[in-house]
Simulated scan of single mutants.
Amino acid sequence: MKHIIENSLKTSMSYQEYINLVDNLTLTNSTTGPEKTETLVNYTALNQRRMSRWNKKLSLTESQKETVKAFNNQIIWLVLTESWCGDAAHVMPVINKVAELNDNINLRVVLRDENLELMDLFLTNGGRSIPKLIMLDAKSHDVIGTFGPRPSAATQMVNDYKETHGVLTAEFKEDLQLWYNKDKGQTIVKDLINLLPVNVSL
């Protein structure tokens, strides 16, 4: 496992590099991944607008900021994503906003379809669901925890809907987008804070 993680880290990018990539893909009517369908290209363009909006408007409470800033272990947040992923458009800006608060958190981004060996180590119910955050000890690269592909409340919504209806409909996906907008990233922030190891300097 460790050599797969380290190989992915070598080819990883910063969040700003990822944003630049998505911006360029939008300008050239393209998308990440091997499939360049019109649908995926359109999703990438939509997600570029979503991420741009979240990058500007997302805010944390003073209490949340203080909790993140108090964390004193050096870790890496290695995140698998793709530009066309709707959940990632809402989740990635929040991950970055939290990581920016503390120099001990090193956020690195890789594309799922270029890192399938890594992805297959962190499946969700057998699927290659993204975004997937893998929290690593910065020195040993041991896995400390994971987050994703969705915040806890959204995961519960998805599970409940699947149990009742079997599959996620277009209507449900619209409802999920509305939930993200209403939640304003707060559940993701709480989930990420809960992911951090407990030995912080308070």
Score class of each variant (00 low, 15 high):
38 E>H: 10
31 T>Q: 08
64 Q>F: 09
43 Y>H: 12
55 N>Y: 01
42 N>K: 15
12 S>F: 00
63 S>H: 10
61 T>S: 15
12 S>L: 05
22 V>M: 06
67 T>I: 06
47 N>R: 05
50 R>V: 13
64 Q>I: 02
32 T>V: 05
21 L>D: 01
36 K>S: 09
38 E>Q: 14
42 N>A: 15
67 T>C: 07
33 G>D: 03
40 L>C: 05
19 I>Q: 00
12 S>E: 03
42 N>F: 14
29 N>S: 15
39 T>R: 13
14 S>T: 13
50 R>F: 14
61 T>P: 12
46 L>R: 03
20 N>P: 01
65 K>Q: 15
38 E>I: 12
64 Q>Y: 08
66 E>A: 15
33 G>S: 07
55 N>T: 02
20 N>I: 02
13 M>Q: 11
38 E>L: 13
55 N>C: 03
64 Q>K: 03
24 N>G: 13
49 R>V: 03
38 E>Y: 12
56 K>I: 01
34 P>A: 12
48 Q>H: 15
51 M>G: 06
23 D>K: 11
52 S>F: 01
55 N>Q: 07
65 K>M: 14
43 Y>L: 08
33 G>A: 07
41 V>W: 00
30 S>C: 04
63 S>T: 14
28 T>L: 00
25 L>E: 09
19 I>H: 00
43 Y>S: 04
52 S>T: 08
52 S>K: 11
23 D>R: 05
64 Q>M: 09
44 T>R: 11
58 L>D: 02
60 L>H: 08
46 L>Q: 07
38 E>C: 11
22 V>W: 01
32 T>E: 01
15 Y>Q: 01
15 Y>E: 01
55 N>M: 02
49 R>N: 14
13 M>I: 15
30 S>I: 09
65 K>N: 15
60 L>I: 00
28 T>Q: 02
13 M>G: 01
66 E>R: 11
39 T>I: 13
56 K>F: 02
42 N>H: 13
23 D>M: 05
26 T>W: 10
31 T>L: 08
35 E>K: 10
36 K>C: 05
32 T>D: 00
65 K>E: 14
34 P>D: 05
55 N>L: 01
65 K>R: 15
62 E>D: 13
16 Q>W: 09
38 E>D: 14
